[in-house]
Amino acid sequence: MNILITGGAGFIGSNLALKLIDKGHKITVLDSLSPQIHGDNAEETSPLYKSIKDKVNFIKGSVTSKDDWKNAVNGQDVIVHYAAETGTGQSMYEIQKYVDVNINGTAILLDLLANQSHQVKKVIIASSRSIYGEGKYKSAEKGIVYPKHRVSEMMDKGDFEVKYPGCETKLELMATDEESKIHPSSVYGITKQNQEQMIMTVCPTLGIAPVAFRYQNVYGPGQSLKNPYTGILSIFSTQIKNGNGINIFEDGKETRDFVYIDDVVDATILGIESDKANGEVFNVGTGVATDVMKVAKTLIKNYGVEVPVTISGNYRLGDIRHNYADLTKIKSLLGFQPKYTFEQGINEFTKWVNDQEIETDNYAKSIDEMKARGLYK
């Protein structure tokens, strides 16, 4: 098939492109080569871009440009839409940029598909676990509940756990399934929800099969070590490699579902190639919750570099406490099974990081930007 990957020079997109090429597909990539991800002079220095250079039909352009979309969509059978601004914290103060790229960029695509001739048969949209906001919980008093966003008044006192009205006992964390409540707690999450809903709503009216993948925290060799706004594993790795201390937010017990890049690519290819995926929304993760303190300790151990770790009680507005994926649907419909445990994936990731040049640690700058706007406490 002829497959367009927007954001195809990015972390997930480039890995997907290479695997699809190996399977005999012809790949076109539309990517702006954002300096935040690729650094300056990306065409000469970005490892992600260089990994696909001369292997794909590369179009340097933006999803905010209708002309770039027209150029890229021509002749494609499948579109995998990854191009997006990412980062929960940054989205809370660069709101127009996130809306322009994520929502308006997707709207331009759908407008084009609705009003011009094309041969597109399927659109894959990269959604996100962020659309769920806080995860799914069980209450002794009320059964299944979906807590609202946490408030500063409680977190300022060091109470970071989620609460639900009328529940006196501690809530029990559960895996979040695709039928769980959607209530994002950040602008990024809102834009991903909007992208997903537009694709899933409009494409069927055009005779195009939509598929949405709600990715958990994706990591692995190749992810950007330059970007201080997203990717806790890369942020911590850059700090450790620079000999800088790690500041653990909240109490270090907040958890995420970390899913290895190869598993994400495999799941996505199942969605591209299987008709069983058509019209469906899937979680993609490991189904395992891993706390941030374990992340920091594992990275320090693997790198063999001792740096101070501080559990500071700081927090960012817009962050969630817990969320991990229920994989029942993707396992039963597509036969997906993650192959990498957290420990296996981290071993591969840290081996790769050890072979990279040490990047400048710009994380403090990203925190200062949030502090200035009252989003970091």
Rank of each mutant, 00 (worst) to 15 (best):
I3R: 08
S62N: 12
I95T: 15
P147L: 06
P308E: 15
A175V: 09
G39N: 10
E141Y: 01
V211R: 00
Y137D: 08
A140P: 13
S224C: 01
I248Y: 04
V202Y: 15
N227C: 02
P35N: 08
V281E: 14
I246S: 14
N244P: 01
G89S: 13
D100H: 01
H81W: 06
A126P: 14
S185W: 11
S127K: 07
D159S: 12
N102K: 01
H149Y: 10
Q239H: 05
D54M: 03
H81E: 10
S46V: 01
W352D: 00
R150T: 12
G252D: 08
N347M: 09
I246Q: 06
Q197K: 13
V120M: 04
E43P: 03
V292K: 13
Q119Y: 00
S46A: 05
P204G: 02
D159Y: 11
I125Q: 10
L110F: 08
Q193F: 12
D319R: 13
T28A: 04
S186D: 03
L33A: 13
D368I: 03
P184W: 13
K60I: 00
K163I: 06
H149L: 09
Q116C: 10
D77H: 14
S65K: 14
Y219I: 02
V145M: 07
E43Q: 13
I5S: 02
I232N: 12
G135C: 01
G24I: 00
R129W: 10
F11M: 05
I103V: 12
Q90N: 10
E250L: 11
G231A: 03
S130G: 07
I95H: 01
C203G: 07
E141G: 05
I367S: 06
E85A: 08
S130W: 05
K60S: 01
G222E: 03
A140V: 07
S65L: 02
P35T: 08
V99I: 12
I27H: 07
I346C: 10
V123I: 03
E357K: 14
E94Y: 09
E348N: 12
S185F: 11
T176S: 14
Y376M: 01
D54S: 06
I235S: 06
L33C: 06
C167N: 14
I108M: 04
I330Y: 01
Y132G: 11
K136F: 05
I131Q: 12
T205I: 08
L225M: 06
G135M: 00
K301R: 03
